[in-house]
Nucleic acid binder design. Structure first.
Lengths: 239, 239
DNA sequence: CGGTAACCGGACCAATGATCCGGTGCTCGA
DNA sequence: TCGAGCACCGGATCATTGGTCCGGTTACCG
């Protein structure tokens, strides 16, 4: 998708269409979920014929790619000099996560290469911030990937579980676990389904473990940043 | 899927079918990818009519659920007394990741609740091991989720990127980044596409950050386990 | 030996992604 | 002013897919 040249436009300003399609696609996805998005339904919502969409967009996958990238525009990129790299990264990752949870359908689409401008801009910020913080190469990629993987996995997991109607599937699953509690004693007793809520707290905890690890690899930032950057935003998670 | 009772069988041993379907589905998925799996093609490979499949399986989603769970049987559950909890967790997560990479199509299916016996058994081991290590509740869920999220995200990311034909998409993406290198300087210079390979090393690094964080929260294990459990398997990642 | 229940599959249906090809209206140059 | 060209639209249509109907066929049990 992002690798093809944009559909050749006329001579002047585009007559406002691709944007509307994507916008409406996101609305439809938000309202009814991923499997209810069909080109016909989308066209109907736009008050047009389904075939017309194919003039602005090559395939349905394009729509999905565009929609997926579009929602990441909601993630605010922290201004550079906020309160240190750790605060910046925390804010970015937090916003990323919020978007994933606000648009649960996105979880199912994460399995495609994300090369849209919004995603790239946020990745760029992540890399740049880490670089500026003094994270160097063996650890730089690990840090950037670790953080991305962590949010993505987290969003996927959380969007998956309450998904599919929320309480009914969740309840059935809980019941299923309870029924087999001899086979899965630890899960049944402490599993994610019994320990309700606090996904956010758990997420923050794990995020700080990662950040601690990243920070520990930066020699000069290890000592002072621990108080300057970290503590202010919920730094190292020593209990 | 996992919540419904198993399709009522005859009086004695099942005439060997559901297993074969799942087995063949995995083979087909491995060979041709997720989008090439249709009920007709699967039936053809099994030398039967497509309709027959629906006697053994309720919907195609069932096949996917079953296939997804089936591959996790390949993840060996470490024997309890290996070399401490950290080694056990590392081994489990490593195996988990290996499976995700060995069956790249699984990445796209992770967005569905995984309640199959194989997945549950491995989750059970994870919880049990952490419990036994002394991780307690605020941190227990965070640890289990953090680790799971991390592997899943990692598998998703890595399976996504080389996916779709491997080098061609990858090359085009690299080209695309290079073309816009003014907009994404850090990405273009240090991004994942230029810093080739070493996904494994990066993964291990991040995993150890998480493990360090988990370990730091366990008071008694913090001092001695650092040498006993951690060092042996590549413990804390202070550079 | 007859019937009952497990199992199979051809014909069929509705929905979907995508294309063909004939329109329509706006703009720009002469 | 006008007509030609091009961006844009959409009805009809195709192939494919997931899934069902319903009539067969086998094999085991009484």
């Amino acid at each position: 998708m992002w690798l093809r040249p944009p559909a050749r436009r006329g001579r002047d300003a585009p007559p406002l269409s691709r944007e509307r399609i994507v916008e409406e696609a996101v609305a439809l996805l938000d309202a009814e979920g991923a499997d209810r998005l069909t080109m016909r339904r989308l066209a109907e919502r736009l008050g047009t014929g389904s075939t017309t969409l194919y003039w602005h967009v090559k395939t349905k996958d394009d729509v999905l790619d565009l929609a997926l990238d579009a929602i990441f525009a909601e993630v605010e990129i922290p201004s550079g000099d906020d309160r240190g790299w750790r605060a910046g990264v925390t804010a970015l990752i937090g916003g990323w996560r919020a978007v994933l949870l606000r648009h649960p359908w996105s979880a199912a689409l994460l399995g495609r290469p994300m090369l849209g401008p919004n995603v790239l801009a946020r990745s760029e910020f992540l890399y740049a911030t880490l670089l500026e913080a003094g994270v160097v190469e063996p650890r730089l990629t690990a840090a950037a990937y670790g953080l991305s993987n962590y949010v993505i996995g987290s969003g996927l997991m959380q969007a998956t579980w309450p998904a599919g109607g929320g309480e009914d599937v969740r309840g059935a699953a809980r019941e299923h676990l309870r029924a087999n509690r001899e086979r899965y004693p630890a899960l049944a007793a402490h599993g994610p389904l019994v320990a309700e809520g606090d996904w956010d707290a758990g997420f923050t905890l794990g995020l700080n473990w990662l950040l601690d690890g990243i920070q520990a690899g930066v020699p000069d930032a290890g000592a002072d940043a621990d108080g300057a950057d970290g503590a202010g935003t919920g730094g190292p998670a020593r209990a």
